[in-house]
C-alpha cells in the first residue's frame, strides 16, 4: 500500500496496513540532513531534500512544503530576516497604519519570490514521489495572515476598535490565500494545509466571525481544484472543535492541549478525519520511547478509524531519533493488534 492509498483509505475509515504518519517536520528535518535552517526556509531544494530524507528514514506518509508563516507576507512586502539557525523574524509590521492597507495589492504566486519557491518545491516533490506520497502545500488562514501583516497584539485591538477595517483586511488576505492555494494545486499539491494559529486566541464567537468564514472559502477553492483540505490551529481549540469541523476541512489537526476523546466526536459519521495529538515536547522531545509508544497507541485507540497519527504540532528540532522510531514502530504494532 502506498502512502497515498493509505491516506485515502484511512480518511474514509477503510482498512489500512498501518495508520498514516502525518507528523509536521520542518526544523527536525533540516537538522536530519545537517543543513542550516535558513536554507530550508529559502531554498526549495533543501526543503525537498529534507522531506525525502524523512520519508526514507522515518516512514512518514507525507511530504510537506510548509516552512514558516511568512511566505505570502514576504511577497506582499513584509520585512523578514533569516538568521542561519532560527525561525524567520519579522521585526516591524507591514501595516503600521490602517491606511497602509489601501496600498496593498495581491501578488500572483508565480511572480512572488517565496511563494514561487514553494511552487518549485511542490513541482520537485511531484517529480520524485507524485502519485505515491501525498504532497502538501500550505497557506496562512486569513486571520493568521492579517496578524502577520499587522502584528498580533495590534490586530487583536483592531478587532474592537475598527472591526470594519479588519473585515476589509481579512477579505484581502483570503483572496491572497486562494490565489496561493490554487497555484500550489496547479503545481501538483494533493493537500493544502491552512494554518490559523491565532484563531485559538480569540473567543468562539469571534472565531465564527473572523476566521471560520474565510477558512471555508479557502477550502472551497481547494476542493474545487480537487485537493484535500487540512486545517491546523495551534493551541487549545476545545471550544471551537465543532466549528472547525464545519470549515470544509477533510483533516483537522488537534493540538495536544485538547482532550482527544472530545475531538474524536467531530470525526463521527461524515465528519473530518482528525490528526493528533500527543504532546510534541513532553512526549516527543522529553519522553522515552516507551512513553511515545503508549501515547501513539492511546491516540489511535481514541481517534477512531479515520485517525491520522501525529504530534499536536511540529516535531521539535532536538527530538531524539529513538522517539521517532518508536512512533513508527507503534504504528505497525497497532496494525498487528487490530
Amino acid at each position: 500500500m502506498t502512502s497515498f492509498e493509505r491516506l485515502q483509505n484511512r480518511m474514509v475509515g477503510n482498512p489500512v496496513d498501518r495508520p498514516p504518519n502525518f507528523d509536521i517536520m520542518m526544523q527536525f528535518a533540516t537538522r536530519h540532513i545537517d543543513k542550516p535552517l535558513r536554507d530550508y526556509y529559502l531554498d526549495h531544494r533543501v526543503l525537498v531534500q529534507a522531506n525525502m530524507a524523512m520519508l526514507n528514514d522515518f516512514q512518514l506518509d507525507i511530504v510537506q512544503a510548509i516552512s514558516d508563516p511568512y511566505r505570502e507576507a514576504f511577497d506582499l512586502g513584509l520585512e523578514v530576516s533569516f538568521p542561519e539557525q532560527s525561525l524567520p523574524i519579522s521585526t516591524s509590521p507591514l501595516l503600521r497604519e490602517p491606511s497602509d492597507l489601501a496600498r496593498l495589492t495581491t501578488v500572483d504566486p508565480v511572480n512572488g519570490r517565496r511563494m514561487h519557491d514553494r511552487l518549485e518545491a511542490i513541482r520537485l516533490f511531484r517529480e520524485k514521489v507524485g502519485g505515491c506520497t501525498p504532497i502538501m502545500g500550505w497557506v496562512e488562514g486569513a486571520l493568521a495572515e492579517a496578524a502577520d501583516l499587522r502584528g498580533v497584539s495590534t490586530l487583536m485591538l483592531d478587532l474592537f476598535e475598527r472591526p470594519d477595517w479588519v473585515i476589509e483586511l481579512l477579505e484581502f488576505c483570503c483572496e491572497q490565500a486562494i490565489l496561493f492555494a490554487r497555484a500550489q494545486m496547479a503545481a501538483g499539491a494533493d493537500i493544502i494545509g491552512l494554518g490559523d494559529a491565532v484563531a485559538s486566541q480569540v473567543s468562539p464567537a469571534w472565531y465564527r466571525l473572523y476566521a471560520l468564514p474565510y477558512e471555508r472559502r479557502i477550502f472551497q477553492a481547494v476542493k474545487n481544484s480537487g485537493g484535500i483540505a487540512r486545517l491546523h490551529i495551534c493551541g487549545d481549540t476545545t471550544l471551537i472543535l465543532h466549528e472547525m469541523a464545519t470549515s470544509g476541512a477533510d483533516i483537522v489537526d488537534i493540538d495536544w492541549m485538547v482532550d482527544y476523546q472530545k475531538a474524536a466526536e467531530i470525526s463521527d459519521n461524515d465528519g473530518p478525519a482528525i490528526c493528533g495529538n500527543f504532546d510534541p515536547v513532553k512526549i516527543m522531545l522529553q519522553g522515552s520511547p516507551e512513553q511515545v509508544r503508549e501515547a501513539v497507541i492511546n491516540c489511535l485507540s481514541i481517534g477512531g478509524d479515520k485517525n491520522l497519527s501525529a504530534a499536536g504540532c511540529e516535531i521539535p528540532i532536538n527530538t531524539p531519533y529513538s522517539n521517532l522510531h518508536a512512533q513508527t514502530a507503534a504504528l505497525s504494532e497497532y496494525y498487528s493488534m487490530a
Binding site: 487583536m156 478587532l159 474592537f160 486566541q201 480569540v202 469571534w206 487549545d236
Partner: peptide
C-alpha cells in the same frame, strides 16, 4: 477560566 481571551485581556490592559 477560558471566559475571556487574548483580545479582551489586551483591551483591559490598554
Amino acid at each position: 477560566e477560558n471566559k475571556a481571551f487574548v483580545p479582551e485581556l489586551l483591551m483591559a490592559a490598554k
